[in-house]
Amino acid sequence: MLPWNYGLHWSIGTAVFLGAFYTVLVIVVTTVISAAVRSRRVLRDGDADAVRWNSDFYALPARDRACRHELTGEVAQRECPNGFDCRKCDTHRMFLDRRTASTPGGKSYEGFGMTFPLDRLYHRGHTWVRRERNGTVTIGLDDFARHLVGRPDALDLPRKGERLRLNDTAWRMRKRNIDLRVVSPIAGIVLETDGPDGEWYLRVRPEQPDLRHLLEGFEVQPWVAREMERIQAALSAWGQAPEPGNNGQPDIAAVGADCPTACWEAVCGAMFLRP
């Protein structure tokens, strides 16, 4: 069996010992090869970003993965098991059936010195999606993100015709020498791009009309309150606290200007769901 080893006499003991040892080796090598083959398949299918989202999502603190129905008080405590994709969630469907009405309470929600128009849907990564009359949707940054980042120093928008996947990177921004990735709220084909000076960043033809995974109407208010709590927690973890603005509420815009780079990067990572 082993070349140049003329002294090895086979017996049951030898076979059991070497057999067990080589079996272990085969298991270890096969497992590593299996992981490599599966990785290759994932990369070939272009699912690397889905893996990234999965990894990022579970890297979030449990409290940050709270179900939208926890935010609205419909359930005392529940962690989202679906990466914020409620379309495949039976529990979400059950809660929707229980709701008497999901109509928004007004044209917009204003709180903490920010405005959230309710003619659009919101992703937990601080983007909004608005259905347009021609069947396309526009995607932009919500007021929270605009206050936090301000005007980006540089933008890396997807090209026209590029395909967006839900929870992949929609676009990148650069601010204070830090790269920020914005999570895509929907899947679709990019038709047009704009930027921070316009109202929206991307115009997209959605792949699916179902946008149930996005927050709407009365869900926005408790979500923003939770986001305020999250940003204060993220800041206090670095020994920082948001300055109060003119209205007496924490001034999100001051965060980007005042806190140290490492803190600001961590805060943005938490708020844009890219820890």
């Binding site: 917009s108 903490f112 208010q221 309150a225 927690a233």
Partner: peptide, 13 residues
């Protein structure tokens, strides 16, 4: 280091 957050009176417009 989490500090309690105070939620203001919120109202949709």
């Amino acid at each position: 280091l989490r500090a309690p957050v105070t939620e203001p009176a919120l109202a949709g417009k």
